[in-house]
Amino acid sequence: MPPHSVAPKANSARQDLSVVLVTGSYDHEIRFWEAWSGICSRTISRQGDSGQVNRLAISPDKRLLAAAIHKKVNVYEISSSSDAPILTFEGHKGNVTAVSFHFEGKWLVTGSEDGTIKIWDLRNGQKHRDYDNGAPVNDVCIHPNQGELISCDQAGSIKQWDLSENVCLLDLAPAGDVPIRSVTIASDGSCLVAGNNKGKCYVWKINDDTSEFPRFQAITKFQAHYKYLTRCLLSPDVKYLATCSADRTVRIWSIGRNWDFKHEKTLEGHQRWVWDCAFSADSAYLVTASSDHIARLWEMSTGETVRQYSGHHKAAVCCALHDGPG
């Protein structure tokens, strides 16, 4: 376990500032939490601003927090006590549903219900590139090679985009027009997992050794939940997959050597839909956000809640955690 883990600390007298844990809610608030104590250390209140907080992302150096808020993205300085963003990116015409930082922190990618994916330059605050996805975007992730994007959408497509050019390299539709809700790619670039509105997950192996760009090979599919799936996320060590659902649970799947996914345990405790999740850097803990207004910290080995974060007044729909090196 890393020295700055989210693991509870019995004798610590102050917050471990190297752990950044944030939640966003329909109450228009963004809350920073002391991971081990469960205390809210900072609240960014936006009561006068329209639109709920949809997604959150922490920059690799832990300096910035990007918050997708209705049709725009606000970028906040994590070390600051100010509620004012240092940057605001406007240009989407629909709800922003995805936000992610480039590993060097130089640019930000966003996806929206307006059917576009946009690249924003954090150095000059300008839009760098537009991609026309052709359908409302539900999720976007950056390939570990930092040269491609993977998106999924309401039309049931998973697309691979080349970041050096405005071109779609691959278009997959594993279940016809059933909307794909979430995509996640392994930290080593070895596989891609997508989950759809009917609770089914699809897995592809990514081969990089045969072409300039990854080639996707369908490996398996399985029924993760029997209700709406909201998020799927591979652990940093690529040993587990977490799936969140409208059935109020999070299911943990262990990943075998032959890419077989086995149901390991079910995390139960949330009283309403579970919308989002985030792994700790060592894959030993998972944070979840739910419509029951609460976020939880789970210990993966036991499947038990070890901390609860209470303070939001409406649904907690997104969370972000960074406890690795900055």
Results as ranks from 00 to 15, higher is better:
Asn145Ser: 15
Glu104Thr: 09
Ala186Asp: 05
Gly115Asn: 05
Ser112Cys: 01
Ala173Tyr: 13
Gly156Gln: 00
Asp121Ala: 08
Trp107Cys: 06
Ser211Leu: 04
Pro179His: 01
Lys227Phe: 03
Gln126Phe: 13
Leu169Met: 11
Gly156Trp: 06
Leu172Gln: 00
Asn145Met: 05
Phe216Thr: 03
Gly147Cys: 07
Gly147Thr: 08
Ile206Thr: 01
Asn145Tyr: 01
Ile180Gln: 10
Ser187Leu: 03
Glu148Tyr: 04
Thr110Val: 04
Thr116Asn: 13
Leu149Lys: 08
Trp161Gly: 13
Val183Cys: 12
Ser190Thr: 14
Pro144Arg: 08
Tyr202Cys: 14
Asn196Gly: 15
Glu104Trp: 09
Gln126Glu: 15
Ile185Pro: 05
Lys205Phe: 13
Ile117Asp: 12
Val140Met: 04
Ile219Ala: 14
Lys106Trp: 00
Arg215Asp: 13
Asp209Gln: 14
Pro144Cys: 06
Ala224Leu: 13
Glu104His: 12
Asn138Gln: 03
Ala155Ile: 03
Gln217Arg: 06
Thr116Gly: 13
Asn124Met: 04
Ser164His: 11
Ile119Pro: 07
Asp188Ile: 02
Lys127Leu: 10
His102Val: 03
Leu192Ser: 05
Ala194Tyr: 00
Ser157Gln: 15
Ala224Trp: 00
Asn197Lys: 09
Tyr228Gln: 14
His128Ala: 15
Tyr228Ala: 04
Leu172Met: 05
Asp177Met: 04
Lys159Ser: 11
His102Ser: 14
Asn197Gly: 07
Lys118Pro: 01
Lys106Tyr: 00
Asn145Arg: 06
Trp204Pro: 01
Pro214Ser: 05
Asp114Ser: 07
Gly199Met: 01
Asp208Asn: 14
Arg215Met: 09
Asn124Glu: 12
Trp161Ser: 00
Gly156Glu: 02
Leu122Gln: 12
Gly176Phe: 13
Ser187Glu: 15
Val137Tyr: 03
Ser182Glu: 12
Gly199Ser: 15
Val109Asn: 00
Pro136Cys: 09
Ser187Asn: 09
Trp120Asn: 02
Pro214Thr: 10
Gly176Ala: 10
Lys127His: 12
Ile185Asn: 02
Tyr131Pro: 15
Glu104Ile: 06
Trp161Lys: 00
Val183Lys: 08
Val183Gln: 13
Lys198Phe: 02
Gly115Val: 07
Phe216Asn: 10
Pro174Lys: 10
Tyr131Leu: 05
His225Asp: 01
Thr210Lys: 11
Ser151Lys: 14
Lys118Thr: 04
Gly199Cys: 14
Ala194Asn: 00
His143Gly: 01
Pro214Gln: 10
Pro144Thr: 01
Gly176Ser: 09
Asp162Cys: 11
Cys152Tyr: 03
Pro174Asp: 04
Cys201Met: 02
Phe213Ala: 14
Cys191Ser: 07
Asn197Cys: 11
Leu170Ile: 14
Lys221Asp: 14
Ile185Gly: 03
Trp107Arg: 09
Asp130Thr: 06
Glu212Phe: 09
Ile119Ala: 00
Lys200Glu: 15
Ile142Lys: 10
Ile185Lys: 02
Val167Tyr: 13
Val167Ala: 10
Lys106Pro: 11
Ile150Thr: 05
Leu122Ala: 01
Glu165Pro: 02
Lys118Met: 09
Asp171Ala: 08
Asn133Ser: 11
Val109Ala: 11
Leu108Gly: 03
His225Tyr: 01
Lys227Ile: 08
Pro144Met: 02
Asn196Thr: 03
Gly111Met: 11
Gly115Gln: 11
Ser211Glu: 10
Arg129Tyr: 03
Pro174Ile: 06
